[in-house]
Protein backbone atom coordinates (compact mmCIF):
# COMPACT_ATOMS: atom_id res chain seq x y z
CA UNK A 1 0.00 0.00 0.00
CA UNK A 2 1.51 3.27 -1.11
CA UNK A 3 1.28 6.03 1.45
CA UNK A 4 -1.02 8.87 0.39
CA UNK A 5 1.57 11.33 1.63
CA UNK A 6 4.11 9.86 -0.74
CA UNK A 7 1.73 10.20 -3.64
CA UNK A 8 1.00 13.80 -2.72
CA UNK A 9 4.67 14.61 -2.49
CA UNK A 10 5.29 12.98 -5.86
CA UNK A 11 2.47 14.94 -7.40
CA UNK A 12 3.84 18.12 -5.93
CA UNK A 13 7.03 17.59 -7.88
CA UNK A 14 9.21 15.89 -5.28
CA UNK A 15 11.29 13.70 -7.52
CA UNK A 16 12.71 11.54 -4.80
CA UNK A 17 9.22 10.78 -3.60
CA UNK A 18 8.22 9.88 -7.11
CA UNK A 19 11.15 7.53 -7.54
CA UNK A 20 10.40 5.94 -4.17
CA UNK A 21 6.85 5.50 -5.23
CA UNK A 22 7.89 3.81 -8.44
CA UNK A 23 10.04 1.43 -6.44
CA UNK A 24 7.10 0.49 -4.30
CA UNK A 25 4.93 -0.42 -7.25
CA UNK A 26 7.61 -1.86 -9.51
CA UNK A 27 6.94 -5.46 -8.59
CA UNK A 28 3.19 -5.30 -8.82
CA UNK A 29 3.46 -3.69 -12.21
CA UNK A 30 5.85 -6.33 -13.45
CA UNK A 31 3.76 -9.17 -12.09
CA UNK A 32 0.72 -8.11 -14.04
CA UNK A 33 2.74 -7.63 -17.19
CA UNK A 34 4.37 -10.99 -16.79
CA UNK A 35 1.15 -12.93 -16.45
CA UNK A 36 -0.65 -10.98 -19.13
CA UNK A 37 2.08 -11.29 -21.71
CA UNK A 38 3.53 -14.62 -20.65
CA UNK A 39 6.89 -13.57 -21.87
CA UNK A 40 9.71 -12.22 -19.77
CA UNK A 41 11.24 -9.73 -22.14
CA UNK A 42 7.89 -8.35 -23.22
CA UNK A 43 6.90 -8.05 -19.60
CA UNK A 44 10.08 -6.16 -18.75
CA UNK A 45 9.48 -3.78 -21.61
CA UNK A 46 5.84 -3.26 -20.77
CA UNK A 47 6.52 -2.75 -17.08
CA UNK A 48 9.18 -0.15 -17.80
CA UNK A 49 6.89 1.61 -20.20
CA UNK A 50 4.19 1.62 -17.55
CA UNK A 51 6.54 3.03 -14.91
CA UNK A 52 7.63 5.80 -17.23
CA UNK A 53 4.04 6.59 -18.01
CA UNK A 54 3.21 6.71 -14.32
CA UNK A 55 6.18 8.98 -13.79
CA UNK A 56 4.95 11.43 -16.38
CA UNK A 57 1.25 11.16 -15.61
CA UNK A 58 1.36 11.24 -11.85
CA UNK A 59 -0.10 14.71 -11.98
CA UNK A 60 -3.25 13.40 -13.60
CA UNK A 61 -3.97 10.87 -10.86
CA UNK A 62 -6.98 11.91 -8.84
CA UNK A 63 -7.61 10.76 -5.35
CA UNK A 64 -11.10 9.59 -6.00
CA UNK A 65 -9.61 6.51 -7.62
CA UNK A 66 -7.51 4.07 -5.66
CA UNK A 67 -3.90 4.49 -6.54
CA UNK A 68 -3.29 0.83 -7.20
CA UNK A 69 -6.27 0.51 -9.53
CA UNK A 70 -5.00 3.54 -11.40
CA UNK A 71 -1.58 1.91 -11.70
CA UNK A 72 -3.06 -1.36 -12.89
CA UNK A 73 -5.17 0.42 -15.46
CA UNK A 74 -2.03 1.85 -16.97
CA UNK A 75 -0.13 -1.40 -17.07
CA UNK A 76 -3.03 -3.48 -18.37
CA UNK A 77 -3.68 -0.99 -21.17
CA UNK A 78 -0.06 -1.17 -22.24
CA UNK A 79 -0.10 -4.96 -22.15
CA UNK A 80 -3.36 -5.32 -24.03
CA UNK A 81 -1.97 -3.04 -26.64
CA UNK A 82 1.20 -5.10 -26.84
CA UNK A 83 -0.40 -8.46 -27.21
CA UNK A 84 -2.79 -7.24 -29.80
CA UNK A 85 0.15 -6.14 -31.86
CA UNK A 86 2.18 -9.29 -31.57
CA UNK A 87 -0.16 -11.97 -30.50
CA UNK A 88 0.98 -14.83 -32.72
CA UNK A 89 4.53 -14.77 -31.48
CA UNK A 90 3.78 -14.61 -27.78
CA UNK A 91 5.57 -17.53 -26.30
CA UNK A 92 5.67 -19.03 -22.89
CA UNK A 93 8.41 -21.45 -23.64
CA UNK A 94 11.18 -19.11 -24.60
CA UNK A 95 11.81 -17.84 -21.13
CA UNK A 96 10.76 -20.39 -18.66
CA UNK A 97 10.48 -19.60 -15.05
CA UNK A 98 12.71 -21.63 -12.88
CA UNK A 99 10.80 -22.99 -9.98
CA UNK A 100 12.48 -23.95 -6.81
CA UNK A 101 11.53 -27.44 -5.80
CA UNK A 102 9.94 -27.69 -2.41
CA UNK A 103 9.36 -30.77 -0.40
CA UNK A 104 5.81 -30.27 0.54
CA UNK A 105 3.76 -33.37 0.27
CA UNK A 106 0.80 -31.84 1.98
CA UNK A 107 0.77 -28.98 -0.47
CA UNK A 108 0.91 -31.43 -3.28
CA UNK A 109 -2.29 -33.06 -2.17
CA UNK A 110 -3.99 -29.74 -1.67
CA UNK A 111 -3.22 -28.22 -5.00
CA UNK A 112 -4.27 -30.23 -7.96
CA UNK A 113 -2.99 -28.00 -10.73
CA UNK A 114 0.60 -27.09 -11.41
CA UNK A 115 1.48 -23.45 -11.70
CA UNK A 116 2.83 -23.82 -15.15
CA UNK A 117 -0.23 -25.56 -16.47
CA UNK A 118 -2.30 -22.75 -15.06
CA UNK A 119 -0.06 -20.15 -16.59
CA UNK A 120 -0.30 -21.76 -19.97
CA UNK A 121 -4.04 -22.02 -19.66
CA UNK A 122 -4.32 -18.35 -18.71
CA UNK A 123 -2.42 -17.58 -21.89
CA UNK A 124 -5.18 -19.19 -23.89
CA UNK A 125 -7.93 -17.00 -22.53
CA UNK A 126 -9.36 -14.07 -24.45
CA UNK A 127 -7.66 -10.86 -23.41
CA UNK A 128 -10.34 -9.48 -21.14
CA UNK A 129 -10.84 -12.75 -19.36
CA UNK A 130 -7.13 -13.02 -18.89
CA UNK A 131 -6.87 -9.50 -17.53
CA UNK A 132 -9.65 -10.04 -15.04
CA UNK A 133 -8.08 -13.26 -13.78
CA UNK A 134 -4.68 -11.65 -13.39
CA UNK A 135 -6.05 -8.70 -11.44
CA UNK A 136 -8.14 -10.99 -9.28
CA UNK A 137 -5.40 -13.44 -8.41
CA UNK A 138 -2.08 -11.72 -8.92
CA UNK A 139 -3.17 -8.40 -7.46
CA UNK A 140 -5.85 -9.75 -5.12
CA UNK A 141 -8.33 -7.22 -6.43
CA UNK A 142 -12.00 -7.26 -5.53
CA UNK A 143 -14.72 -7.20 -8.20
CA UNK A 144 -15.01 -3.46 -7.68
CA UNK A 145 -11.33 -2.81 -7.96
CA UNK A 146 -11.18 -4.77 -11.18
CA UNK A 147 -14.12 -2.81 -12.52
CA UNK A 148 -12.38 0.45 -11.64
CA UNK A 149 -9.13 -0.61 -13.22
CA UNK A 150 -10.63 -1.75 -16.47
CA UNK A 151 -13.48 0.70 -16.74
CA UNK A 152 -15.95 -2.15 -17.00
CA UNK A 153 -19.36 -2.55 -15.36
CA UNK A 154 -19.35 -4.73 -12.27
CA UNK A 155 -21.54 -7.37 -13.86
CA UNK A 156 -19.25 -7.63 -16.81
CA UNK A 157 -16.30 -8.15 -14.51
CA UNK A 158 -18.11 -10.96 -12.76
CA UNK A 159 -19.17 -12.64 -15.94
CA UNK A 160 -15.64 -12.41 -17.35
CA UNK A 161 -14.18 -13.82 -14.17
CA UNK A 162 -16.70 -16.64 -13.88
CA UNK A 163 -16.35 -17.51 -17.48
CA UNK A 164 -12.58 -17.38 -17.30
CA UNK A 165 -12.58 -19.80 -14.41
CA UNK A 166 -14.87 -22.14 -16.26
CA UNK A 167 -12.64 -22.05 -19.28
CA UNK A 168 -9.55 -22.61 -17.19
CA UNK A 169 -11.17 -25.43 -15.37
CA UNK A 170 -12.07 -27.12 -18.66
CA UNK A 171 -8.59 -26.52 -20.10
CA UNK A 172 -6.88 -27.91 -17.02
CA UNK A 173 -9.26 -30.79 -16.69
CA UNK A 174 -8.64 -31.76 -20.30
CA UNK A 175 -4.97 -31.46 -19.70
CA UNK A 176 -5.13 -33.83 -16.77
CA UNK A 177 -7.33 -36.25 -18.61
CA UNK A 178 -4.80 -36.20 -21.39
CA UNK A 179 -2.68 -38.29 -19.06
CA UNK A 180 0.24 -35.93 -19.00
CA UNK A 181 0.31 -36.07 -15.28
CA UNK A 182 0.34 -39.83 -15.17
Amino acid sequence: MVEPALIKAAQAGDREALVSLLREIEHQVYRTAYYLLNHEQDALDAAQEALIRIYTKIGSYEEKAQFRTWVQRIVTNICIDKFRRKRPSVSIDEHELVFQARDNVEGEVLSAYAAEEIREAIGKLPEHHRTVVVLRYLQDFSYNEIADSLGLPLNTVKSYLFRARQQLQVLLHDYQKGGVRG
Binding site: V19, L22, R23, E26, H27, V29, Y30, R31, Y34, Y35, E40, A43, L44, A47, Q48, L51, L97, F99, L110, S111, A112, Y113, A114, A115, I118, R119, V133, R136, Y137, L138, R165, L168, Q169, L172
Partner: peptide, 18 residues
Amino acid sequence: LSRGLEQLPRVVPPYSLV
Protein backbone atom coordinates in the same frame (compact mmCIF):
# COMPACT_ATOMS: atom_id res chain seq x y z
CA LEU B 1 -8.34 -24.06 -9.66
CA SER B 2 -8.80 -21.03 -7.48
CA ARG B 3 -6.25 -22.28 -5.02
CA GLY B 4 -3.84 -22.93 -7.85
CA LEU B 5 -4.37 -19.39 -9.10
CA GLU B 6 -3.76 -17.98 -5.65
CA GLN B 7 -0.51 -19.85 -5.46
CA LEU B 8 0.90 -18.68 -8.76
CA PRO B 9 4.44 -17.49 -8.13
CA ARG B 10 4.76 -13.80 -7.37
CA VAL B 11 7.37 -13.30 -10.03
CA VAL B 12 9.80 -10.46 -9.65
CA PRO B 13 11.87 -8.80 -12.34
CA PRO B 14 15.45 -10.03 -12.65
CA TYR B 15 16.72 -6.51 -12.07
CA SER B 16 15.35 -3.29 -10.73
CA LEU B 17 13.17 -1.72 -13.38
CA VAL B 18 13.26 1.64 -11.68
